[in-house]
Design a binder for these strands. Structure first.
Lengths: 210, 210, 210, 210
DNA sequence: AATGAATGAGGATTCATTCAT
DNA sequence: AATGAATGAATCCTCATTCAT
């Protein structure tokens, strides 16, 4: 019994350290971006010496990439179309609401991702690549959802709408970063959902057969 | 004539140097953000020694703030509602088109501004403050334009729409950063303008008296 | 044996490096004062890169403070009243002699301390504070010694005499810095001891009961 | 009339600038020592650009030397034995009092001088040399005064007493720098004068014929 | 008599990373 | 699995000084 416990402790310590490092790195990178995040800061916040960080991660690039990867799961869950029934419109509005909530709950993911996106360093860090992969997956899901809502829509139009939808969400997030609580995220997403439905209808009418 | 020219050159060296520094800093900061911009890089790109940069700007913070301030004018011009006549809808679509074009022409401004917005360092750099000021001005102008388009709209609704409009524009910019030329900015802004006009009409109908 | 030695060497490298840094810093700071001491100079003299100095000391301030602290012990030892017997006068003269010798043996301590005392920078370095603490301890010991020599003396008078005694010692040190070997430190301290004894007697006579 | 005035103004402007520079440099150098005094600081405090300082002074060394030289006069005046009559003892006590007062009135001189004395940079600045010259003059005057007080004293003894007297004065100054108002400078100098007179008498008695 | 601008050297400090233990 | 120590390159910024005007 004690053996097993201490054994577990020891084996788990490695993972716990890794988790502590990732937690610290996520906080700091979410606040400061890639260049603004230093190993020394991460070390200070997680309590482990800098050299220990290099035991768990090959270099800074890999650490930030791992941060992105880990927050991916929590984030992507919000994108799954609910199995529930009801008219497509209701489901779309519901989806928009859940996306908005996810933005509030795990803001580090998108903030860091956008920072990595906007920063254009010569050697593209793998963290940026990772974020773009995730984003591409989300984009494809959105296209699928829009296809369900308006089966007759042309593929190009569906993609345009998906980009439009994601862009607005990104923008809302930024507005929230700037305006804080004074920004009515709920109102924005509600408006967004209705506007999108209108746009779907309008585009579907313009190109009746895709 | 040659005297005057060489005389001017020499006498105006201060301003010309300042401009060269700002040009270099704008390029780099637009690509790399605050922490990613080093004085040594700026020095290398503008051809002046680092110590000369400190003759013109108190510190890095003030330099980046000046970068933001200078690109403000070029950017803000795109926001002015055209004096030309025609139905408000046409003017709005035109405005959206010009904003989209400005995003393509002077991308450094918004990219740096958004980077500064997303980076949350402890001591807020004055560059960030400057960008937020500019943004607030743009926001107020947008509220004014929306008020012209739908005079009966409630103030809160006009503000919501303005935030919505700016958020989408931010998002389009980011989408362009990610997707490059494959992103149809014109199509997005056109769709955006029409969708917004619909939304204005819808909200105006819902709240007939503001 | 060799194992133990090399093992120790390697393991104790941290402390040895720290000592080497302190040695170098003491030499330079004793010669040049706070502002005149550069980390690069210390690095060159101790053989370790500048960045290694920052592993051992948080910043220059802490380094100089450590220099002061370390030389404190060597210096303070000279102040202990000898346990030996004999008339108080002889012991006082002996003490003065030992203080004078300490001044010659470890001059960096007092020179750096006085430099820190005279330099009045806005943010008082902790090194200065440390020196003043040490000095206060020495002052209190002197008051105690004077109290032993003249038990009837008023407290204020004992303090005055202690300040007088230390001031003269500081002054002798400075005179030596200026005049070099041509300054007869022994003669000065001998004169000082006798003068002090006279002063004690005179003050004790003036205020018979304290 | 106006001509003369403007002429004077212009001619005097140069001298006034020089004075302003010296004032600023005296303040800063008195507080921070040689290395701690930067031309930029002096420029900021006197309101003239750094390049103007170099119009008046060849380099930093010459500036600091001029600071020392200028404060010399104000300081040295305090050393002149009063022409007034009365017993030598009274005149000596009076002299000590005036020296003490001068220390309080123009502390920058001695503080800077001592800083320059204690700092041992490789290339001895001319400012230090200047201070030592001044000090040597003061020393010779003191020897003269002591000779007057005790005509029979050996030359070596007179010099020793002079060094002792000056050392104590230096030390009092330092004590004042450390202890501030809590240090009774008057009491110290009074005690010093009486103690010195005793010492003079004692030495004169020991060596009746010099 | 004065100054705006420039400049190379050097200031303290932090960087990401490595390595022996 | 972890860490104390080290390190060279880079960080921002200040230095004393010069020069054309």
């Amino acid at each position: 019994m004690p053996d097993e416990r201490s054994g577990r402790r020891r084996r788990a310590n490695g993972e716990e350290s890794r988790r502590k490092i990732l937690d610290a790195a996520a906080e700091i990178a979410g606040e400061r971006g890639y260049d603004g995040t230093s190993i020394a800061q991460v070390s200070a916040r997680c309590g482990l010496p800098a050299s220990s960080i290099y035991w768990h991660f090959k270099d800074k690039d890999e650490l930030i990439a791992a941060v992105i990867e880990r927050s991916f799961d929590r984030w992507l869950a919000a994108f799954t179309l609910p199995g529930g029934d009801g008219p497509p419109e209701a489901r779309a509005v519901d989806l928009a609401g859940r996306i908005g909530k996810a933005l509030l709950d795990t803001p580090d993911f998108l903030r860091l991702g956008l920072l990595l996106t906007l920063e254009r360093r010569p050697e593209e860090p793998s963290a940026r690549r990772k974020f773009l992969e995730v984003r591409e997956i989300a984009h494809r899901r959105l296209v699928g959802i829009i296809g369900e809502l308006a089966p007759g829509l042309a593929a190009g139009q569906a993609r345009l709408l998906a980009v439009y939808a994601m862009s607005a969400a990104d923008g809302f997030f930024i507005a929230r970063e700037i305006g804080g609580d004074s920004v009515d995220l709920n109102g924005l997403f509600e408006l967004h959902a209705r506007v999108l439905l209108d746009a779907v209808a309008r585009l579907a009418a313009e190109h009746p057969d895709g």
